[in-house]
Design a protein around this nucleic acid. Structure first.
Lengths: 124, 124
DNA sequence: GATATTTAATTCACATGTTAAATAATTTCA
DNA sequence: TGAAATTATTTAACATGTGAATTAAATATC
C-alpha cells in the first residue's frame, strides 16, 4: 500500500514489519506461528523478518520454557515507539482509503475478502 | 491465486509468466514497457521474467530497428502451446471465483479495483 | 523407557516486488 | 554539429512470497 509505505519510509521498516509490530502491540508476546497468522505472513517469511527486526532492536526473541520448540516474540521499547509515533497517521490513511472507496463498497470488499480467505478476515 | 498456480504447476511457469504469455497471445509482439504495463508487472520484474522465459524458449527477444533501445518481445510456439492447453481451464477458474463471490459483489470488486488503481483496470 | 510419530521452526532455492542507480540510444537545441 | 537532456531498458540490492526439505523438541505407543 503506497501511502503506508510512504508513512514508513523515514522509519526504515517495511509494511510487513509494521504489521508485525502492530500485532505485537495489540496482543502482547506470542509464538512465531501465532504472530505469523495474525500478521498474515507465511511462516518462513516471518522467520526472516523476525531476524531482521531483532537485529534492528525492534523485537526480542526467547524460547518458551514449557515447550522449547516455541519461539516467543515480544516488542521492545524502540518497536513500541514506532507504533506510538505512527498509529494516528495509519488510522488516517485507512480512513482516507475507506472514504475514497465509499462506505458501501468498502463493506462489500471486506465481505468478499473474508469469503475468499476466511483466515485473513479482520475482527471488525 | 492458488487455483491458477495449481493449474500451472505441471507447466513449470508462474502466474506472472502466465500473464505475460496471455498478453503476448492477445496483443502480439510488443515492447517491454508495453508488455509490463499490460501484464501488471513492474519494469524490473519483467526484465528478469523475460530472461527466464527466453531461456525456457517461451518467448523471443529482439531489438526494434527504428529505436534500438526498444526491446521487442514475441511468443514462441512452445509458449503458445501452454496458452492453448490451459486457456479453457483458466476461464473455468475465473468463472468459479466469480460465482463464488457472486455477480453483484464481483461487479463492485472490479469497480473498487479500477478506482484504487486505474492503470490496472481490465477492458471488461 | 526406547523408538516412531507429530509438531514448531528453520533453512533452502527460486521467483517477484520495490526503489534507486547505471546504461545506452535518441532527441533537443544552442 | 555536438553537448545536454530525455527516454527505454537494465542492473543492483534488499525484502517478501512460495513450496519443499530439514532440524529439533515433544508426544505417543508398544
Amino acid at each position: 500500500m503506497p501511502p503506508i509505505r510512504e508513512m514508513l519510509a523515514e522509519t526504515g521498516i517495511t509494511e510487513q514489519q509494521w504489521r508485525v509490530l502492530r500485532v505485537l502491540a495489540e496482543y502482547g508476546p506470542q509464538s512465531s506461528s501465532t504472530l505469523a497468522s495474525r500478521a498474515s505472513l507465511l511462516f518462513p517469511s516471518l522467520t526472516r523478518i523476525a531476524q531482521t527486526m531483532h537485529a534492528k532492536g525492534l523485537i526480542t526473541l526467547s524460547r518458551d520454557e514449557d515447550d522449547r520448540r516455541r519461539q516467543m516474540i515480544a516488542i521492545t521499547n524502540d518497536g513500541q515507539k514506532i507504533i506510538d509515533e505512527k498509529a494516528d497517521r495509519a488510522l488516517e490513511i485507512v480512513a482516507e482509503v475507506k472514504q475514497r472507496i465509499g462506505e458501501d463498497k468498502y463493506e462489500v470488499l471486506l465481505d468478499i475478502l473474508a469469503q475468499l480467505d476466511p483466515d485473513h478476515a479482520e475482527g471488525a
